[in-house]
């Protein structure tokens, strides 16, 4: 992920100051707000840094270090690899989120990584709504050499999921990854449709879905908190992926989400290519947020 240029610039200004006075702390808070941490989280982080200020004389580097460490402290407990159970055949990964967040693309990338790890993967085109959503996932299935199950656009998504699970079972596949249509969390009807998909899955295998991934777009602001809340309730979200960290957005909302919901973060998306998926690394993420160079 790229560093955040204005945040970097701001912190570099701090660099030249001798110690952390109140004004400097205010500036720091502003910088964190600009990274979408949200005002409450930004205030909390700034306070933590303020408390540390008398410990020793601080230059900009150490300020950034302290802030990055503070952010990483929040994120560390949530950094967890995606680890679908080997015992479940198939292990089911349901992928949900608002429109355009990057669900389909992320599925393509995840499928490819499991394929190269030697797993047999089935992709289910559960977005039976959006124009050419099926065709889009079909291309990814081909790229990742995965078995592909689809129905015509307009078909019942839950029925498609049922078929896809049967297919995965009969093929003795390791993994079934289910794409779903994008939906805004305030649309009751669409959220009910998602609930139905989960219900159908549970009838097929009471332990499914084994993972329910919420895909968050890094450009999203405070609305991401509402997304985690609503999708959590309806789809039992077990983990997060944050996409589009290759752009100018810094995804600081992830810090607020981690504080509040403590959900695992598995991956970050850093581009549109099949390999543009990285494990979530809290140190690197925090360093990038503060414009520090990559550690490793």
């Amino acid at each position: 992920s790229k560093t955040s240029s204005s945040l970097t610039r701001g912190i570099t200004d701090l660099f030249t100051k001798e110690k952390l006075d109140a004004a400097t702390l205010d500036e720091l808070e502003d910088l964190l707000i600009r990274s979408d941490l949200g005002i409450a989280t930004a205030e909390r982080v700034t306070e933590a840094v303020g408390r540390a200020r008398h410990a020793r004389a601080l230059d900009g580097e150490s300020v950034r270090g302290i802030v990055a460490a503070e952010v990483a402290r929040v994120l560390e407990p949530v950094a967890k690899p995606l680890d679908p159970p080997e015992s479940a055949r198939p292990a089911v990964i349901l992928v949900v989120g608002v429109n355009g967040s990057g669900k389909t693309t992320t599925i393509g990338k995840i499928a490819e990584s499991y394929r190269t790890a030697g797993l047999k993967v089935v992709l289910a085109a559960g977005d039976t709504f959006r124009a050419a959503a099926v065709e889009q996932l079909a291309v990814w299935a081909k790229r990742a050499d995965a078995i592909f199950v689809s129905k015509e656009t307009g078909a019942d998504a839950a029925a498609l999921v049922y078929e896809a699970w049967q297919k995965a079972k009969s093929e003795d596949a390791d993994l079934l990854i289910i794409d779903t249509a994008g939906r805004l969390q305030n649309k009751a009807g669409l959220m009910a449709e998602l609930e139905k998909i989960v219900r159908v899955l549970k009838k097929l295998d009471p332990s499914a879905p084994h993972d329910s991934l919420l895909v968050l777009d890094a450009t999203t602001g405070q609305n991401a908190l509402g997304q985690v809340d609503a999708f959590g309730k309806v789809a039992g979200v077990t983990g997060l992926v944050m996409t589009k960290l290759d752009g100018t957005a810094r995804g600081g909302i992830l810090v607020a989400v981690a504080e509040k919901y403590k959900l695992p973060v598995h991956f970050i998306g850093v581009g549109e290519g099949v390999d543009d998926l990285e494990p979530f690394d809290p140190q690197e993420f925090s360093r990038a947020l503060l414009g520090l160079p990559r550690a490793g």
Binding site: D36, A218, T219, G221, N223, A249, R250, I253
Partner: peptide
């Protein structure tokens, strides 16, 4: 996107 944060 209207859901965009500070990156807007």
């Amino acid at each position: 996107d209207a859901l965009t944060g500070q990156d807007a």
